[in-house]
Structure formats: C-alpha cells, structure tokens
Design a protein around this nucleic acid. Structure first.
Length: 369
DNA sequence: TGGCCTTTGAAGTTG
DNA sequence: CAACTTCAAAGGCCA
C-alpha cells in the first residue's frame, strides 16, 4: 500500500473515499509496476524507442494488432498487454490519425525530448512545489478569472499548474475555507469539515495560473457573492462554470426572464460543477508543460499519449502520490458539493461517442469476425 | 465556433 | 455485477 506511505498522511483514519479502488489498482499492478519502474530507471532511451516503434506500428494499420502490444511487452509486462491493453491499443491504432502520429514522432525526434523522457519524475515536481514559498500577498493583484473552459486563461507553460491539494502537502499554515460557500454558489453545502480546509490553503506564486480550485480557495474574500446574481465581481469556484462553458456573467440575468422560460432556463443555466480530477488528470496537469517543453509538441492528443506512457512508467510510489491527491480532491469535492453527482454533467458535452463506439464495435466485428 | 483527438480514472448507466 | 459510457484537461485541427 504505497499510498499510505506517502507524505499525505492526512488521509488516514476515516476518509477512505476511493481508497479501495486505489488499493486494488496497486495490487493489480504489483509486479508489473515494479518491472516498469525498473525499466524506466534502467533505460529511458529504450522505452522511448519502444514507444516510437509501437507508434509506428499503430500507424501501420492492422499489423499493429500484433505489433503494438508486443512492442511494449518487453518493458511493460504481460498483464498490460492483456485483453484490455490490446483493445485500447487497437482502438488507438484504429482511430489515431497518421497526422497525429507524425506530429508525435516529430516531437519524439527532438533529442531533448528523448533524453528527458523519463528522467523527470513526480518527485522533481513535488520538490518544486515544496519550495514554493507561501504567497506573501495573496490577493494583492486581481487574479484572472479562472475558467476551465477558457483556455486563454490557462497558460500551458511556466510553473506547473497545481491542484489545490498540493497545498495540503506544502503549506504549513492552511487558510480556513470559507464557511458559507454554499450560499455563494447556490449549492447546498453544510461544510462541517474544517480539517479539509488545509487542502486549499495559500500556496505557490503561480496563483493566477491555477486553473482548478486552488485560486478560488485562496481568495475567500473574493468569493463573496460568487455564483449569485447581482454579484458581478464574484469569483466562483473554478470547478463551477456557467453552462455555456464560458465565464459570461450575462447568464446571471435570470431576474429579467419571464417565469415561463425561467424554469427551463434555470435548469440550463445552473452553474456546472466540474468533476474532480483523477490521478492521471492531476499528473497531466503537472507534467504537460514539461512535455511540451521537452518534445516541442503542442497537440494535446500527442502529448497525452506521451503522458499516458509516462504514467505507466511511473513507479507505484510515484503514482500513489497522485492517487492520494485525487482521492483528496474527490473527498473535498464531496464535502463542498454533497448533492453533486457526475451525472449532473452528463449530456453537457455534445459528443458522438455513442455513434463512434458503435462504429468501432462494427469495425471490431469486421476485423475479428 | 465547437467537436474531435488522445490519455487514465472515477462514476454513472445499462443489461 | 460486468460491461459500457461519459466526463474531467489540454490545445491544435478541421468542418
């Protein structure tokens, strides 16, 4: 149980939210992970070569079915090249555009990318976090409105974008979370857990870059009236975005609406509370800039492929830190929004996944029948 | 302008 | 309960 050994000891005791899954995950990955970590420590270049070769296979079409898992098998153990991995790789190979593969390879061609591929682990990032001094004047300058849907507000370079829970590890003087959040957001929230407030304490100097909940919590005074009509200066929880996906306060002119339309529109205009980030998402957030810098890549699809590989190359201990962070994110999210469900956001993205999956199923049946 | 791509994991839905 | 689906982030790309 590596995550229990990690620094975030605050998770002990009764907060076992999500823990069983994580334990299972680690148990399942057991030896495989050891192989991975050993491997990544032993030969980053080799891993890179395998990655590249597997990508080539993926882009080469049906031959990838046999080639892709085999390419990584040497480094990643049998379990990972099992049915699930095979299916995933197969899907990837089938859906992955040649162009994207090319761009990924272009990025991988960069020597600095190859050399740094597996050298920087989560530890370096955490060390960086630990060395961030608490902001001397949080709130001195007005923070840009953090919007999870406003990409312009989320720089992809510079200081790693931190999840609020990193603060839990780094800040010795947590700032109490506001006690009346539910009021501000129109979300029912009893908040009876002062012990969690530390997760969102003041931290790094990159506050303005924090896209997630941290900047929201680090400016309790600015939150006043957040999410409430008639409070244009309010800064809502970054996890809460207007239904349009844009931070447009015009959506709060409900009072002008007639009662007839208000009911339906109220539903539609209810601020969206985003899902808490899982371990991998937290990892991506932190490492993306690094990968971009190393690999001269910009396309997220390609970057995410690299990050996915790196994620698997992490040791259990390294991954455990992110699982722990994610667990606390979920826990805090649950405390903040007791009534919230992931279901609330279902259907808010207009996707074609279902059709796509049906197509892919058809493809699979064609391929394997 | 907004969906797609791509990744993993969590949570919801379906059969 | 297993399998499947959706969403979370990111930003270039394309219809």
């Amino acid at each position: 149980m590596p995550q229990l050994d990690s620094g975030g000891g605050g998770a002990g005791g009764g907060d076992d939210l999500g823990a069983p899954d994580e334990l299972l995950a680690f148990q399942d990955e057991g030896e495989e992970q050891d192989d991975k970590s050993r491997d990544s420590a032993a030969g980053p270049e080799r891993d890179l070569a395998e990655l590249k070769s597997s990508l080539v296979n993926e882009s080469e079409g049906a031959a990838g079915d046999a080639g892709v898992p085999g390419a990584g098998a040497g480094a990643r153990g049998e379990a990972e090249v099992g049915a699930e991995a095979l299916g995933r790789e197969h899907t990837s190979q089938r859906l992955f555009p040649d162009k994207l593969t090319e761009s990924l390879e272009d990025g991988l061609k960069a020597p600095e990318c190859a050399s740094g591929m597996y050298k920087d682990t989560v530890y370096s990032a955490f060390n960086l976090l630990m060395h961030y001094p608490p902001p001397s004047g949080a709130g001195q300058h007005p923070q840009p409105q953090p919007s999870l849907h406003n990409k312009a507000s989320q720089p992809s370079h510079g200081v790693p974008q931190l999840s609020p829970l990193y603060d839990h590890f780094s800040s010795p003087h947590p700032t109490p979370a506001p006690a009346d959040i539910s009021q501000k957001q129109g979300v029912h929230r009893p908040l009876q857990t002062p012990d969690l407030s530390g997760f969102y304490s003041l931290t790094s100097g990159s506050m303005g870059q924090l896209p997630h909940t941290v900047s929201w919590f680090t400016h309790p005074p600015l939150m006043l009236g957040s999410g409430v009509p008639g409070h244009p200066a309010a800064i809502p929880h970054p996890a809460i975005v207007p239904p349009s996906g844009k931070q447009e306060l015009q959506t709060y002119d409900r009072s002008l609406k007639t009662q007839a339309e208000s009911k339906a529109e109220k539903e539609a205009k209810k601020p969206t509370i985003k899902k808490p980030l899982n371990a991998f998402m937290l990892y991506m957030k932190e490492m993306r800039a690094k990968v971009i810098a190393e690999c001269t890549l910009k396309e997220s699809a390609a970057i995410n492929q690299i990050l996915g590989r790196r994620w698997h190359a992490l040791s259990r201990e390294e991954q455990a830190k992110y699982y722990e962070l994610a667990r606390k994110e979920r826990q805090l999210h649950m405390q903040l929004y007791p009534g919230w469900s992931a279901r609330d956001n279902y259907g808010k993205k207009k996707r074609r996944s279902r059709e796509k999956h049906q197509e892919s199923n058809t493809d699979n049946s064609l391929h394997y029948s």
